[in-house]
């Protein structure tokens, strides 16, 4: 096959579903789109540690405490895998942090909501992780190799997250009156933000077409959202809870559940920084980073001293 240009070669790799690797030529926009998407994803994992982290010290049993701690730790790991994938594109983790801390980079808006009761740990695992998995599974086949490999690892570890969340919800839903109330209350608060997690409608999502073309995305926002609604309605029946959306109705013709209008005004406001916890979340990340600076510097200084001493010994 005669190859005429880098661009054509790249396009043909994409068309033949061949993975793009770090040293391959790639269009600038492809690189930029990936950096934006992967770093945003990584930031979401790291910021996402905070709302659940709130409940580690308050978990109601030792088993739940251990599971939650391991889960939040997994999120740190996922952030790390993803930052590493983005680093293969020529950006450093420090630069990405800087973008997060200065508000230049976004993260998933869902983490700007508070976690008010223990049931929120259930709702987050069940709904938020459930929605995340739906987004993430197709990404295991995304066109950029390091991203796809990171996602394989993430998805493998993520499956326990949703299950533990559902288990918490089930325990509460089958528990006492107050526990059931807790579960329903958390469901009501997390439902809408969860379905907003898939992002704006396809009509409002200008980047989708190009991303699908590049196989960075494999399904559109609306396709994934519909899939999520369909499975969640069924799971809700198992829990015996009520759907927070009164417009949920099976549509025979479409073969899907119809659902009520999403409050996009709220969505865009939370994205813009007007959510209930935007400031706290970002401050927590900035504080961790700023307060850690002397620690990171000390480790570097010590490593340099040791290297110098070892070098001295070898020379002598």
């Amino acid at each position: 096959m005669p190859v005429h240009s880098f661009q054509e070669h790249f396009d043909s790799l994409i068309d033949r579903e061949i993975t793009i690797e770090p040293k391959d030529w790639m269009p600038d926009d492809y690189r930029k789109t990936l950096i934006r998407q992967i770093s945003q994803h990584a930031h979401s994992e790291i910021v996402g540690m905070l709302p659940e982290g709130n409940w580690i010290t308050r978990a109601p049993s030792l088993r739940r405490k251990a599971v939650l701690l391991a889960k939040v730790q997994d999120e740190a790991g996922h952030g790390l895998y993803l930052y590493s994938a983005a680093e293969t594109l020529g950006i450093t983790r420090d630069e990405m942090y800087n973008q997060l801390h200065t508000g230049k980079a976004k993260y998933s808006s869902i983490f700007n909501y508070p976690t008010l009761t223990w049931a929120d740990m259930g709702a987050i695992g069940w709904l938020v992780d459930g929605a995340a998995i739906m987004n993430q599974v197709p990404l295991c086949r995304t066109s950029y190799g390091p991203y796809a490999r990171a996602m394989v690892r993430v998805c493998k570890e993520e499956s326990f997250h949703q299950r533990q969340g559902f288990e918490i919800m089930l325990t509460l839903a089958k528990g006492t009156e107050i526990q059931k109330k807790m579960a329903q209350d958390a469901f009501n608060r997390w439902w809408w933000p969860s379905i907003m997690m898939f992002g704006p409608t396809d009509a409002e999502s200008p980047n989708t077409e190009q991303s699908v073309r590049w196989r960075i995305k494999r399904f559109t926002n609306d396709e994934l959202r519909q899939k999520f609604v369909d499975v969640t309605v069924e799971q809700t029946k198992v829990l015996g809870l009520e759907m927070p959306d009164k417009d949920i109705k099976w549509n025979e013709e479409r073969g899907h559940y119809d659902f009520g209008p999403i409050n996009w005004d709220e969505f865009w406001n939370v994205v813009k920084g007007n959510g209930p916890c935007n400031k706290q979340r970002l401050d927590a990340r900035k504080n961790a980073w700023d307060n850690g600076k002397w620690v990171r510097d000390a480790a570097m200084a010590h490593a340099a001293k040791r290297k110098a001493r070892e070098g001295g010994v070898k020379a002598a």
């Binding site: 701690l69 939040v72 730790q73 740190a76 952030g79 504080n287 620690v295 990171r296």
Partner: peptide
């Protein structure tokens, strides 16, 4: 466990949580 999510660097956040 109070450090989880607030460590000086991601790798050490994970390390300390393992210990916890």
């Amino acid at each position: 466990s109070e450090w989880c999510g607030h460590g000086p660097i991601l790798e050490q956040d994970i390390a300390l949580t393992n210990t916890s």
